[in-house]
Design a protein around this nucleic acid. Structure first.
Length: 734
DNA sequence: AGCACGCCGACT
DNA sequence: GTCGGCGTGCTC
């Protein structure tokens, strides 16, 4: 959608298009109130029985009976959304094929904007049984069984149980579930205290300003006013200047003293024009406090934050730093499927700002962009974080296969024993939570799966339960086979970190062994504390999942053993190799610099000749593992269809790929050089009881991908119950 | 997010 | 026929 200029204004009574943050994928028309409106203004508008937040997006679109238009309810006391931000949201929505309203929601979710999340009490199970039991009601009760009677928001409960809101409402009306305000007493589901109720900004009466230009406030001068700031000074985020976060020795953020002249040249230009900066950090994985502060600060200066910081209303943005740009948590995986790194690049280009993508292990696409000359590559001076390059070796399991039921091979065992003797720390990395990924009956071969998902249940020995890693459902470990009834033959197959720890305890009974796995901590804080203790030398052998790579520094670590690194490389996930490479580098990378020890890494795998492993082993420069591994694959958007819980709908979802109209859709893509594969059942064809299929497209880099996909979505007969989501650049192909 | 509508199967 | 239960679509 074209944007009018910021100065565009609308007379009282004129139809204006207002974009709300509601799930309607276009702006709705309203009448400008007395006093008129400027484009970009934050307004409150009536929608059905409610009043919702919106942004004036342009002149009325028409197409809706003009006499039915309702009036804009009020003008919010906020600076209007700038043209750059509107344009950013529109282009981001366009690029990711996300409804524009969803993008607006991201930009307005910060506290201090938008409606207060109604402090509605949470629903808990009461003692009453429903008068009539139905399939849907049983699912709700089961959800309580699986997750505990913790209290859920209505929508949350509906989602967990896989039912519509109507079911929840019905049960509530019968007194089977009851609302009780207990938000604050929940032990760890919610880490934030209840929020104050009144957060809706006061609505001021419309101003008498007929068609004048919108309020162009004078900003108070920035607090640290320097004519020509050096990049590391006012431009870098406050948290960093405060030194709130200790930086690992291999830090990759621009450090003032060490930046190359070239870097200064490139960065100073934009900063001189617009001396404000934003730094994106990896997502901490829990709700961000302080976004309201971020909003206020962003208008005047700099801010650092996770993905959500992308949508803060900076003015005069000069530089965006994306720290650890390769990190997977920059990819938002539900709702709007965007990659924060790419959106940072987009935003910077709209704002005329510079971007620094910082990483010791760049993502493939970043590497390619640098190779292609689209990005300038800046290598930090070698001595900066220059660890002695760690020694790496592959263990060929064809020769060194451990005994059945064991996963620590001879050479790895010897290496760990050596480290133990030297008083150094070892890490055994295995990306599988729990004790064993598979529980089978030795009598009949039956495997225990989740009832709601087509996934196998994972044994968690500490919890003494089987857990579904897709939906979280749990059940006790059965003694007798649920299929054939034979007792005592249920067997745990395959390794998880818990089982690996068991093996390690048997081998090294005197060593201090610690497991680092996200499900073994009660809260994010507890987890952090635990990691700190372990990293500080509290364990001799650390057994961990990918959690260990999340930016933690293990100064005593000198050995990393990757258990079954090859498993991830042979699955359907084409990025697995890249991820493994990055992970190992992150964990054992230049961080050893401080201790000046040589870190060695051992790959335990069956076939060390696979190119990725070769690349990792021969890595002599920071990113060479990414070099020359395979030709650029072009772009591979993934399309997923959720068919709902009914099998016939799932089947209809699957027919997205067949039929006459679908064939026309396929031709439409092929005409633009885009191939469509599938549909195939998703690797886990059912999650939470919902069936899913997936299609994979392959497009050359030059193809007009978004337009083609949009046309395809229009041409293909998508049944109403089927939801299709498109991920333009998926991180994994699931 | 909340409500109205209309479909469907169970019961009168 | 009717009614309760449920998913779906609409909201300017």
């Amino acid at each position: 959608m074209e944007h009018p200029t910021q100065d565009e204004a609308f007379a009282p009574g004129a139809p204006v298009a207002v974009l709300t943050a509601e799930p309607i994928d276009r702006p709705l028309d309203y009448r400008a109130p007395a006093g008129g409106l400027a484009v970009g203004a934050f307004v409150s508008v009536p929608l059905g029985p409610r009043k919702v937040l919106g942004v004036v997006w342009g002149p009325g679109q028409g197409g809706y009976a003009e006499e039915k238009l309702r009036d804009v309810a009020g003008l919010l006391d906020l600076p209007p959304m700038r043209t750059e931000m509107r344009s950013f949201l529109a282009r981001a929505a366009d690029y990711t094929l996300t409804p524009l309203t969803l993008m607006l929601r991201l930009a307005t979710r910060a506290p201090g904007l938008g409606e207060p999340p109604a402090a509605r009490p949470l629903l808990r199970l009461a003692d009453a049984a429903p008068a009539r039991m139905t399939e849907a009601r049983a699912r709700v009760l089961k959800a309580f069984e699986a997750y505990g009677n913790l209290g859920f928001a209505p929508a949350e409960l509906a989602q967990l149980a896989g039912v519509s809101g109507a079911v929840i409402k019905g049960l509530e009306a019968q007194g089977v579930i009851r609302a009780r305000s207990s938000r604050a007493t929940l032990p760890f589901r919610r880490s934030t205290p209840p929020r104050p109720a009144a957060r809706f900004p006061p609505i001021r009466p419309p101003r008498r300003r007929p068609c004048a230009s919108p309020s162009r406030r004078r900003l108070s001068p920035p607090r640290c006013s320097r004519a020509s700031p050096a990049p590391a000074r006012p431009s870098l985020p406050r948290s960093r200047r405060r030194g709130a976060r200790p930086r690992p020795p291999g830090a990759r953020a621009p450090a003032r003293d060490r930046l190359s002249v070239e870097f200064l040249d490139r960065v100073e230009g934009p900063l001189r024009r617009a001396p404000r900066g934003m730094a994106l950090r990896r997502d901490p994985g829990r709700p961000q406090a302080g976004l309201a502060r971020g909003r206020r600060r962003a208008r005047r200066g700099s801010w650092s934050g996770a993905r959500s910081a992308l949508f803060l209303p900076f003015r005069q943005l000069g530089l965006i730093v994306v720290d650890e740009e390769h990190d997977g948590s920059y990819k938002q995986e539900d709702g709007a499927l965007y990659h924060a790194r790419d959106m940072a690049v987009l935003r910077a280009s709209i704002e005329g700002a510079g971007v620094v993508l910082a990483s010791a292990t760049p993502a493939l696409e970043t590497w390619a962009n640098a190779e292609a000359g689209k990005y300038a590559r800046l290598d930090l001076p070698e001595r900066f974080g220059a660890a002695v390059l760690p020694h790496m070796a592959a263990i060929d399991l064809r020769a060194e296969e451990p005994q059945r039921g064991r996963w620590i091979s001879e050479p790895l065992e010897r290496a760990v024993t050596e480290r133990l003797a030297a008083g150094e720390q070892s890490l055994l990395f295995l990306n599988r939570r729990g004790y064993a990924p598979l529980t089978v009956c030795r009598a009949c071969g039956h495997q225990i799966g989740c009832e709601n998902c087509d996934a196998r249940m994972v044994e968690h020995r500490f919890r003494q339960r089987l857990v579904c890693h897709q939906c979280g459902a749990t059940k006790p470990i059965p003694l007798a086979c649920p299929s054939c009834g034979v007792e005592g033959r249920m067997t745990a197959l395959g390794p998880g970190v818990e089982r690996l720890a068991e093996e390690a305890e048997a081998i090294w009974p005197d060593a201090r062994i610690a497991i680092l796995s996200s499900d073994l901590a009660r809260s994010a804080q507890a987890l952090k504390a635990r990691i700190d203790v372990i990293a500080g030398g509290g364990a001799d052998i650390v057994i961990g999942t990918q959690l260990v790579s999340k930016g933690h520094n293990f100064p005593h670590l000198t050995l990393v053993g990757v258990i079954d690194a090859d498993l991830g490389l042979q699955g359907g996930d084409l990025r697995a190799a890249e991820k493994t490479f990055q992970l190992v580098r992150q964990v054992a990378g230049p961080r050893g610099a401080r201790s000046r020890r040589r870190a060695s890494r051992l790959f335990k795998r069956t076939n060390p000749t696979i190119p990725c492993i070769q690349a990792i082993l021969s890595a002599t420069t920071r990113a060479s593992g990414a070099r020359g591994r395979r030709p650029r694959p072009g772009r591979r958007p993934s399309l997923r269809a959720h068919g709902g819980r009914h099998r016939h709908r799932a089947r209809r979802a699957a027919h997205l790929g067949g039929g006459a109209r679908a064939r026309r859709g396929r031709d439409l893509l092929r005409a633009r050089d885009i191939d469509l594969y599938g549909p195939a059942p998703a690797p886990i064809a059912r999650i939470r009881g919902r069936h899913r299929v997936r299609l994979l497209a392959r497009a050359p880099r030059s193809a007009p991908l978004q337009g083609a996909l949009r046309a395809w979505l229009k041409a293909v007969p998508v049944p109403s119950a089927v939801r299709v989501t498109v991920d333009v650049d998926p991180q994994s192909f699931f």
